[in-house]
C-alpha cells in the first residue's frame, strides 16, 4: 500500500447558496408569516370583541382598575355626562355606565378602559386651556368606546403575548416583534384618527361649533418639535397630521368655529390642587 498525495476538495461540505440570498428568502418568509399571523389575530380579536357582552367588559375593566385605581373626578364626570347627553337616541354607548378617574402622572395621555372607565392622567389635564378642548379629549376617548378599540387592543395584546410565548418561550425574537409592533402602530394610528373624527362630530353636537378641537394638538406641536419620522412607529399620529385632518373634516361638514369657553371654576380648583402637590 503506497501513499499518493492528493488534495481533498473542501467545497463539497459547504452549501453554495449566498448568505445574503438566503437571508432575503428566510426574512421574506418570516415577514409573510408574521403578517398572516397578525391578520388572523386582528380578525379573531375583532370577532371576539364584537360578541363580548358588556357585563364581561365591565368585569375586565374592574380587574384592570385594581392595579391602578386612581380617584374618581366629579368635575370631569360632569363634562363627560354632558357629552353623553348629546349622543343620539339608540347609540350603543348608552349601555355603558361611564366614569372618569384621575391618575397623578406626568404622562400627557388619557386611556379608555374596558367597562366604560376613562382614565385621565394629570399631565394631560395641566395642558388643557379651555372647556372645548377638554370636551374634545373626552369625546375622543368616547370615540374609542364607540369603535371598541379599547377591547381590540387588549385582546390582541393578550393573544399575541400568548402566541409568542408558545412559539418562542423565553428566547425573544426581536425582528418579528419589531415588525408586528410596526404593523400595529399603523393600525393604532388609524384608530386614533377615527376616534378624532368621531370626537369632532360629538363636539359639534355638544356646542354647536367645533372651536377648540385642534387647540390641544397645536399646543402639543409647539411643545416638542419632532420630525414625522419619529412618528413612523408611534401609537399616535403626528399632531400636525391630526390637525390637518380635523380642520379638513370640519370644513367639509361646514362646522362653524366659534370662540372657546374658558375652563370652569371647578376644573381650575382641581388644577390648583394638582399644582400645589
Amino acid at each position: 500500500m503506497k501513499f499518493v498525495p492528493k488534495e481533498a476538495d473542501g467545497a463539497v461540505n459547504i452549501s453554495k447558496t449566498h448568505p445574503l440570498a438566503e437571508m432575503a428568502w428566510l426574512g421574506g418568509g418570516l415577514f409573510l408569516l408574521a403578517a398572516l399571523v397578525y391578520l388572523g389575530l386582528t380578525l379573531l380579536t375583532g370577532w371576539i370583541v364584537h360578541h363580548l357582552p358588556v357585563d364581561a367588559e365591565v368585569w375586565i375593566g374592574k380587574e384592570i382598575l385594581q392595579q391602578e385605581p386612581g380617584i374618581p373626578s366629579p368635575p370631569l364626570k360632569k363634562r363627560l355626562d354632558a357629552l353623553v347627553e348629546c349622543l343620539p337616541q339608540g347609540s350603543p354607548l348608552k349601555r355603558y355606565d361611564f366614569s372618569v378617574r384621575l391618575i397623578e402622572s406626568d404622562t400627557v395621555n388619557a386611556v379608555a378602559l374596558p367597562g366604560g372607565t376613562i382614565v385621565v392622567f394629570s399631565g394631560l389635564l395641566k395642558e388643557v386651556a379651555s372647556e372645548n378642548e377638554l370636551s374634545m379629549i373626552l369625546a375622543h376617548e368616547l370615540g374609542h368606546f364607540a369603535h371598541r378599540d379599547h377591547l381590540k387592543r387588549l385582546g390582541k395584546g393578550i393573544i399575541l403575548g400568548a402566541a409568542s410565548w408558545l412559539l418562542f418561550k423565553n428566547s425573544s425574537q426581536p425582528f418579528l416583534f419589531t415588525f408586528v409592533s410596526g404593523l400595529d402602530a399603523r393600525y393604532s394610528q388609524s384608530q386614533e384618527e377615527d376616534a378624532d373624527m368621531w370626537g369632532l362630530h360629538l363636539l359639534y353636537r355638544r356646542y354647536g361649533h367645533v372651536g377648540g378641537s385642534v387647540d390641544f394638538f397645536a399646543r402639543l406641536l409647539k411643545k416638542k418639535r419632532q420630525g414625522r419620522l419619529a412618528y413612523l412607529f408611534a401609537s399616535h399620529p403626528h399632531p400636525q397630521k391630526r390637525i390637518e385632518r380635523l380642520v379638513a373634516a370640519a370644513r367639509e361638514q361646514k362646522y362653524p368655529v366659534k370662540a372657546v369657553e374658558p375652563l370652569g371654576s371647578d376644573i381650575q380648583n382641581l388644577l390648583e390642587d394638582l399644582n400645589r402637590e
Binding site: M1, K2, F3, V4, P5, K6, A8, V12, N13, L167
Partner: peptide, 23 residues
C-alpha cells in the same frame, strides 16, 4: 487488497426541521 491510499476524506452537514416539527 488496498493498493493506494490518499489520506483523509470528510463530509459534514447541519440540518434542522421546521418549527411545526419542533413543536
Amino acid at each position: 487488497s488496498i493498493i493506494e491510499h490518499y489520506g483523509i476524506v470528510q463530509g459534514s452537514t447541519v440540518r434542522a426541521k421546521h418549527l411545526g416539527r419542533d413543536f
